[in-house]
Computed example of a mutant assay.
Amino acid sequence: MEMTNRIALVTGGGSGLGRATCEQLVAAGAKVFIFDMNEAAAAETVAMLGTDNAASAAVNVSDEASVAAGFAALEQRFGELHLCVNCAGIATAGKILDRDNNPLPLSDFAKTINVNLVGSFNVARMAAALMAKNAPMGEAGERGLIVNTASVAAFEGQLGQCAYSASKGGIVGMTLPMARDLAKLGIRVNAIAPGIMGTPMLLAMPENVQEGLVANIQFPKRMGLPKEYGDLVVHLASNSYINGETIRLDGGIRMQPR
């Protein structure tokens, strides 16, 4: 799918991987619409990209009505949708039992699943419905692409990551069946599983903490760049034969228990 003048939706586009994805998509010729609960951060991304290229709405991805309102705003602004990238999510930690053997509050587990997994599905289903209206594009006759964000924690969850790993494992698990569901419409579905990425949150950590995180990365011996996530999204859009796949973006890391 050629990105020039295509319309992309990026959730969590106000910061981190989402913002970098917006930058790469606009550089490739696309226009982006951002869903983000942080209105100020989303507005900063829009201002950086230019209002001709970007717009945003305050959206809670785990809330059905909020997502519906966001899609109404997207349709009003751009009229169509070709690419959806789900970057919105939360990183949580908590062992199933604490030091006093008290169980993790169920609400903590449920919140992580609701934002990361249910939220991604909530947006993807609405995106698919809008993409289904598109005329077939290119030689492959595709109508759109959905990219969800998993994590290496889906495969090697660390101590305290029961909820987070379950949420990201669910994204991996739904990638192929979602691609199968939408194949007859020419809509592809893939997932990216990032490793240790150099987002502002991680780069603000003490240097010794950053060194510990990088220790198990094979090559290159550094954190991943958010731009590299955005680059992979652009490549997935251009390569119509990648479908139903989860791609690790991790420098060869395999996470240890802690």
Rank of each mutant, 00 (worst) to 15 (best):
Y241H: 12
N122I: 01
N208S: 12
A150H: 01
I192P: 03
N102H: 13
V147P: 11
D63E: 13
Q158N: 04
A72L: 05
P103V: 07
D52Y: 01
A72Q: 14
A140L: 12
D36R: 10
T51P: 04
L83H: 06
A150E: 02
G157V: 03
E75D: 14
N122W: 00
S238Q: 12
A42R: 10
C22Q: 11
N239T: 08
N239L: 04
A215I: 06
N38C: 07
A73S: 14
Q76A: 15
N134Y: 04
D63W: 00
R180Q: 11
K133C: 07
R188A: 05
A55R: 04
R254N: 11
C87K: 02
A179W: 02
T51C: 05
P194I: 10
L49M: 09
A41L: 14
I146M: 07
Q24P: 06
N216Q: 11
A28G: 06
V123Q: 01
S165G: 13
M131I: 07
M37H: 13
A129D: 12
R125G: 00
P226Q: 06
D36E: 11
M3F: 09
S62P: 03
G50H: 08
P177C: 06
T4Q: 12
S66W: 06
E156C: 08
Y164G: 00
D250K: 05
M205Q: 15
L17E: 09
G144C: 09
R19V: 02
N122V: 02
N53R: 14
R258H: 15
F219H: 10
V234P: 01
Q76H: 13
A20I: 12
S165L: 03
A68F: 04
A55Y: 05
I192K: 05
G244F: 08
V172G: 02
L130E: 03
Y241E: 08
P226K: 09
L17I: 10
A154S: 12
A47S: 15
A93V: 10
L182N: 00
V118T: 14
N102D: 12
V214E: 10
G89A: 13
L185I: 05
V85C: 14
E23H: 10
S107V: 12
G12A: 08
L49F: 10
R222T: 02
M174N: 06
V26T: 09
V209D: 02
G230N: 08
A237I: 05
A128Q: 01
D98G: 03
E156H: 12
L249I: 13
G29L: 10
A129Q: 12
A237D: 02
I253K: 10
A191V: 07
H82F: 13
M178F: 15
A58S: 15
P177L: 03
V85F: 15
M201K: 15
I96S: 15
G170R: 00
G50R: 08
D108R: 08
E245N: 13
S151W: 04
Q218L: 13
I242H: 04
L145C: 07
L49V: 11
R143N: 08
